[in-house]
Design a protein around this nucleic acid. Structure first.
Lengths: 224, 224
DNA sequence: TCGGATCCACACCTGGATCCCG
DNA sequence: CGGGATCCAGGTGTGGATCCGA
């Protein structure tokens, strides 16, 4: 049904590269999957398709571990038109229950972004989903300067969470990394705790990379 | 579909008392619910039926709050034959992820048992479920001595959890309060952490009141 | 008998993302 | 355009308990 787990970074990248130019429909056929007519009710379809195709078995679903744990690599598909991302990129959910003493280096955000396999996917809405093609994949890690800004953004968000100032958590904060609502819908609430240990019911949220940042990543990759 | 939320303890008790002598089938009819032929695949049916019937909307489902939060009262149905319970009584799940500094007075066990509305249910297996009748409900709180023993049992269990000695958590410990497996099945595992922050995968467990203890509660109530 | 095993419901949480209105 | 809203899958956790084999 799906491919074996790649054992090395080179193997994973080679597999991803072999998808270059292939259509979503072809890749789905090979796995005996049907392509939905559109992504409205199957928003995660392409991401899961590519992960299956590369041998990611979803073994680490719901765990704060990279998709390819043995390699320490996270897979991200990214919708692209003319070399530019059309959407921001979800990183992970934001834990509003504060566990004291979280640091950048062991945060979920850092662990997800430490090493990423980016797989660009054609996103032109005029093209039927099954006919869209896969672009050139590449492995990326944040530069020292990228990491500095990501960390600074992260710390700004986390501070607000720690202080229980949830109302100030909105999408306008953060240069590269923003925080936005995330959940089943706007009624999707979760239990949160402030620094004082008070409990509250708060809208669930997630961390996202801004398009402006992922655009930089894609552009740099093209120059390689 | 279901009754309004009772506003006072008296109102709640009066409602529960009005169920005295009624059959499960009658109560279910009034809520347009069907009674399953047996409880094997609907083990929680009676408990949920009575809760609905008393105006507990399940608002606090999955939260560590009493069923009737406004009154601080937890509802427990208890299967009875000849005035004696036929089963032990589930209290709450046992958190195997240790949060340091948990105390008896703010433990889930204490908060669940601080004040309980007991609703006895006829449990004779020779009588069809829909024909079984509701007994005399009563509100109970642990006596000083009860609480002393419950607390001592609780502390014994919690100490083992804190020390990560999960293998020693078995059903024979505890005079009134025992700890037993609880979950989908014996493969139902969860992440646990010891005091030292070690992680482990452990069988999920729950706290239960022994039959011998609930028998005492029922007997005392009959003398009132 | 009773300690271990099991059964259902359902909200929550995380991971996969894209949709859509002002 | 971008921040807020939404959609699916599926594991986990809690609450409601009773079943069952040695």
């Amino acid at each position: 049904m799906s491919s074996p787990i790649p054992n090395t970074e080179e193997e994973l990248l080679a597999k991803a590269s072999s998808l270059y130019g292939k259509r979503i429909g072809e890749i789905a056929d090979a796995l005996n999957l049907c392509v939905p007519p559109n992504q409205k009710n199957k928003k995660g379809f392409v991401g899961e398709l590519i992960e299956l195709s590369l041998g990611g078995y979803k073994r680490n679903k719901n765990l704060p571990l990279p998709d390819f744990e043995n390699l320490g690599i996270e897979l991200k598909t990214i919708p692209v038109i003319d070399g530019r991302p059309t959407e921001s990129t979800h990183v992970c959910s934001a834990a509003l229950k504060r566990s004291a003493g979280e640091h950048w280096k062991n945060s979920r955000v850092f662990r997800k972004l430490e090493k990423v396999l980016w797989v660009p996917i054609q996103a032109d809405p005029r093209i039927e989903l099954s006919q869209r093609v896969v672009g050139r994949s590449f492995i990326w890690s944040p530069s020292t300067e990228d990491e500095k800004i990501l960390r600074s953004d992260w710390e700004e968000h986390v501070e607000l969470i720690t202080l229980g100032r949830f109302a100030e958590l909105h999408g306008e904060r953060g240069e590269y990394l923003q925080i936005r609502p995330k959940g089943r819908n706007s009624n999707s609430k979760g239990l949160s705790t402030s620094e004082l240990g008070e409990s509250a019911i708060t809208q669930s949220r997630g961390f996202y990379l801004r398009k402006s940042f992922t655009a930089k990543i894609l552009k740099y990759a093209c120059l390689l």
